[in-house]
Each structure stands twice: as C-alpha cells, then as structure tokens.
C-alpha cells in the first residue's frame, strides 16, 4: 500500500454526551463545534453540527463513527464520514480519559474517512480511499489523513 498526505484535520468537541450502556457497548456522543483542515489540495474549516458517535465495545476497542461537514476556503461543502478504531494499554487509555496529553504512538487510533461533495474542484474526494492516524487531544482529536494511491 502506498499513500500520500491528503490533509490534517483538527476538530474541537463539546462536552461528550454519555449515554451509558447500550446493547452493543457503552455509547458516548461527542458533538463537534468547530475545527480546521489543511492539505496540499484543500483547506478550510469544520462547520458546527457534526459529531462522533463512539461506542466502547466489550473487548475494550473504541469504535468511532464520525460525521462532519467541511467548508473549504473557497466555499465548497464536503461531507466527511469516518469509521475507525482506538485501543491501547489500560494505563494509556486511562491517561487519555483523564484529559492528559499522550504520545499517539502509545495507542492505536486509525480511521477510514469517506467524502462526498458536489464541487467539481473537490470531486476527486468522491473517488478515493483514505486512511487516517488520530492523535486524541483534550480539546478534540487531530487526524493526519492520507489518500491511498
């Protein structure tokens, strides 16, 4: 597999909504209030209104299910959804839960973003497969997103 950088995306989250135990695990919804993204071919901001519908599975893996709208600096709207997984040693996950900054190489946080847009300059996003590596910060995650070539 070869890839190349697509963009770096930082999102900011509101206090999470802790729904507790649901049939598939423990559900926590993190509303997304804002953010920015920047890469060689696109840059702009994250619109408020999206969120990450996270599910902590019984096997300790956190499933991420993100849906946000990106607005490029030239006014195009891009719908981004991303499914991913996060897991690591208990002490590392505990530090993250305490809001500490943790070296992202100490845990596994990978997602597979998908994009939808009607804007011709960004239609290439409709046709690619992408992967991302996440860095969970207290204010929200930073995703380094690559296009799979």
């Amino acid at each position: 597999m070869t890839s190349r950088p697509l963009m770096t995306l930082q999102v900011f989250i509101a206090p999470p909504q802790k729904l507790g135990a649901v049939p598939h695990g423990t559900r926590v919804i993190a509303p997304i209030t804002s953010g920015t993204f920047e890469g060689p071919r696109l840059r702009g901001r994250v619109l408020p209104g999206g969120g990450d519908w996270t599910l902590l599975r019984p096997d300790g893996v956190l499933e991420l299910d993100l849906r946000i709208t990106l607005e490029t600096e030239d006014g195009a709207l891009i719908y981004m959804s991303s499914f991913g997984l996060r897991h690591g040693p208990p002490e590392v996950l505990a530090a993250l839960a305490n809001g500490e900054s943790v070296d992202p190489s100490k845990y596994y946080f990978r997602t597979t973003p998908r994009f939808e847009t009607s804007a011709p300059p960004y239609a290439f996003l409709n046709r690619l497969i992408a992967i991302s590596s996440g860095d969970r910060r207290p204010s929200g995650p930073i995703y380094t997103i690559d296009e799979v070539l």
Partner: peptide
C-alpha cells in the same frame, strides 16, 4: 491488553514516508 504495537509492528513496511506521512 490490546495495544497493536506488538513486536511485529516494527516489521511494518513504511509507506510513503518519503513524502512526509507517518502512515
């Protein structure tokens, strides 16, 4: 405990690092 960065991970084939990505 579920950390995927086991010993085999160091055998991973770095892809596209020449272009500045950590993937």
């Amino acid at each position: 405990t579920g950390c995927a960065h086991g010993p085999a991970a160091t055998n991973g084939v770095a892809t596209a690092n020449r272009r500045g990505t950590a993937m």
